[in-house]
Design a binder for these strands. Sequence first.
DNA 1: CACGAGACCTGTTCGC
DNA 2: TGCGAACAGGTCTCGT
Length: 272
Amino acid sequence: MPELPEVETIRQNLRRGGANSPAILGWTIESAHVLWARTLAVPDVDEFEKRLPGQQVIEIDRRGKFLVFELSQDALLIHLRMSGDLMVEEGSEPRSTHCRMAIEFTNGQRLVFIDARKFGRVWLTAERDLILSGLGPEPLDETFRSQDLYHRLHAHRRRLKPLLLDQAFLAGLGNIYADEALHLARLHPLMLSNQVSAVQAERLWWAIRTVIEEGIRRNGASIDWVYRGGDFQNYFRVYQRTGQPCRECGEVIQRIVVGQRSAHFCPNCQQL
DNA sequence: CACGAGACCTGTTCGC
DNA sequence: TGCGAACAGGTCTCGT
């Protein structure tokens, strides 16, 4: 479910506190409980539950779609994949049905990892860079320039949509924001990356950053039964708007399947 | 190297 | 109403 803007929203809520959840910076872990073993990428459940108690939450960062909790000894990395979510609740509350992992703090609060589809993964490691090293550039980083994007596009001969979803190419985009960015940039999802001109690359660079920034400003998108409080879904240009008129030209939005994922686009604004 | 298919999972919605 | 199919914000691995 979560792409960069949703993950960033969660990070900010955990770091600074949100509407009805406190900031967890500085809290000390009392115990950890893994309820679905495969949630843990590394280490095994025994070591995970043994190593966490006593560690303090120093900082919360984000890299692509990974949440990175800097603890006193280790780094705790969490990837929400399709249906994962994190929330802070009273330690006395009954455990929710889809709770896969819970971290109890010495102040009686707990951080829970809720994940209906069980795709989410958690790493506890002292070597966080090993796990994050394969990721492409951070789209909002000031060192990421449009010329970088142009060169990266020309280093491949791939269709734009699957390429934008490739986290080694660029970190953080998912199905929503890739479709939105391509529409804003007026580029067809099937266009080949090495056919993109410098001007088009500049437009795509700007579009990617624009949709991500807007997503963050709106606290992410809330869709279906997964709700996180954001309202970016009310401003989608193409995503899940199949059959509805393009907000730019009125043409009917189309849905095609590319790389096993749905791609939404305007046949008029985004021509091959 | 690029791409498609299948796997991993559960829940909701759609079509007959 | 019921029931199976299709679909869902992600990523990995394998075969061509």
